[in-house]
């Protein structure tokens, strides 16, 4: 069987896969990183978004072998070892940007890529457009958008701490 070597959340792994094995299958079934979800499996919902070499991609629409040699970051790789959440995770918690939580890992990964690509800041409209590849069926997106708007200020150093959500 072919082998894939890739670095996931800073740890290098070599895994045997089939030609048809998807990256998301490698992450969930071989590495047991089940934070990355499979929603639609048709590259529409974005629950499976991870970063491959710094770019957000849908892990259900890339072969594991195509990710050979790459650096992958999943939702499990965001918090610090002491448990301190990434500012985007913290913002999703503060702004109650989730209900069932199924889409959340993909939302957070897409949101981080979106914010990193826009150092000058994103308007509400740009955040909404930037989330085109992620579907949420619970919250109607409003709190997700608010969370991302707040997190970008922390991520770009314009705020020391997250602005608290309105009561």
């Amino acid at each position: 069987m072919p082998q894939v070597t890739l670095t996931v959340n800073g740890k290098t792994n070599t895994v045997e896969v089939e030609g048809r094995t998807l990256l998301v299958e490698l992450l969930r079934e071989k590495l047991r990183l089940t934070g990355t979800h499979v929603g639609c499996d048709t590259s529409q919902c974005g629950a499976c978004v991870v970063h491959v070499d710094g770019e957000s991609v849908k892990a259900c629409t890339i072969l594991a072998l195509q990710a050979n040699g790459s650096q992958v970051t999943t939702i499990e790789g965001l918090a610090k070892p002491d448990g301190t959440l990434h500012p985007m995770q913290e913002a999703f918690r503060e702004y109650h940007a989730l209900q069932c939580g199924f889409c959340t890992p993909g939302m957070v990964m897409s949101a981080i890529d979106l914010v990193q690509k826009h150092p000058d800041g994103l308007s509400e409209k740009e955040i909404r457009e930037g989330l085109e590849g992620n579907l949420c069926r619970c919250t109607g997106y409003h709190n997700i958008v608010k969370a991302i708007a707040a997190a970008q200020d922390v991520m770009h150093g314009r705020a020391q701490t997250l602005a608290p959500a309105a009561e």
Partner: peptide
């Protein structure tokens, strides 16, 4: 075209 993640691939 598509969405951000599709455009990245």
């Amino acid at each position: 075209i598509g969405d951000t993640q599709v455009r990245n691939r």
